[in-house]
Computed example of a mutant assay.
Amino acid sequence: MRPFLHVGGRDYLRCEACEATFLHPAQRPAADAECAEYRLHRNDPEDPGYRRFLARLVDPLRIRLAPAAQGLDYGCGPGPALAAMLREAGHPMRVWDPFFAPDPDALARRYDFVTCTEVVEHFHAPAAEFARLDGLLRPGGWLGITTCLQTEDARFAAWHYRRDPTHVVFYRAATFRVIAARFGWRCELPAKDVVLLHKPAPPAAAAPCLSPPNPDRESPCATKPSSTTSPTASPRSA
């Protein structure tokens, strides 16, 4: 981690391994200030504009899901509109949020997919959070993310996304490829600021032999005697 930029009274650090940019830990908002900021959000499930915004993730995710796949909206906020849209599409959904839906039972299960819409930029401990998300996914599951991806460093100081006081980590496309490699996921970027991470299912085990053993039948692995050697001869008798 190296110093990256000081702007607006804030200090930002850059991870040289994954290219993410972090707000200095000492400058992160306290939990009460963070929650107060979230309460200002107007995430109405019935708002057509907001539903179009969420459809950027819902549409590419749905075509990758099995019918009735079970999902978790992680960091759902005060208005879990995404969960409502996915329920309408036939997917049983649970929600979890540290402030608005702190249901421990939701984190004690595993899911076919997990969604994080405008959530990962709030992670104070991204490594631990992504490890938790990996644990919430069943093998073969999908993690769907929306977040504004950082591109040019020259634009960072004036970037609107940086100025949100609750945004403490900023990702590049390369960052998600590093995260995917860390967990053995496959990374796809189907649309602007949309990331899909696939946790592969383990390879199928070889089918066991179901035939009962037959002591009178020669093992296929047995060494057959040559035509010039007596079947009863010792290997050392020649």
Rank of each mutant, 00 (worst) to 15 (best):
T146H: 10
H91M: 08
G184D: 00
L149S: 14
P225G: 08
R217V: 14
E218R: 12
D112N: 00
R110P: 03
V114T: 07
T166P: 03
V120Y: 06
C116A: 15
R186P: 01
L143E: 09
T175I: 12
D112K: 00
V114F: 02
A127N: 04
F156L: 15
L197H: 03
R217D: 05
L149Y: 02
L107I: 05
A89L: 10
E118T: 08
D105N: 07
N214D: 15
A222E: 10
A106N: 03
T115F: 00
Q150F: 02
K199P: 12
A181V: 07
A180I: 01
R182Q: 15
F156P: 13
Y161G: 13
R177T: 15
K192H: 09
G141I: 12
D134Y: 10
F170W: 10
H198V: 03
H167V: 12
F183M: 01
A173R: 15
G90H: 01
D103T: 04
L189K: 12
R138H: 05
P231A: 05
Q150G: 08
P220W: 13
V195D: 03
G90Y: 01
C116D: 04
R162C: 08
S226Q: 02
R87P: 00
F130L: 02
A101H: 08
W142Q: 11
W96E: 02
A106H: 06
A101V: 08
T151G: 02
A191Q: 04
A207D: 09
P102K: 09
P200Q: 07
R138V: 13
P102F: 07
G90A: 05
A207Q: 10
A191E: 15
T147A: 14
C116Q: 01
C116F: 09
A207P: 02
G141R: 10
T223Y: 13
E129W: 05
T223M: 15
I179N: 12
R109V: 00
R177K: 03
H160N: 14
F176G: 06
A106Y: 08
A125R: 14
G140F: 06
F176R: 06
Y111F: 06
H160V: 14
H124Q: 06
P102C: 05
F156M: 09
T117L: 04
R109K: 12
W159Y: 13
L137A: 11
S227N: 01
L143Y: 12
R94W: 05
R87G: 01
V195H: 00
G90K: 02
P190M: 11
S219H: 14
A106P: 01
Y171P: 07
P208G: 00
R172C: 11
V195T: 11
A128L: 09
T115N: 04
D216N: 13
D193A: 12
R182N: 03
G135C: 13
E118L: 08
R177L: 12
D112L: 01
H198N: 04
A174Y: 05
W142E: 14
I179D: 02
H198W: 07
P98C: 08
P202K: 09
F100P: 03
W96K: 04
K199Q: 11
T146N: 05
R109L: 05
T117N: 11
A191W: 05
E129T: 03
A101P: 00
A101M: 03
R172I: 13
P102I: 08
A89T: 02
L137D: 11
T115W: 07
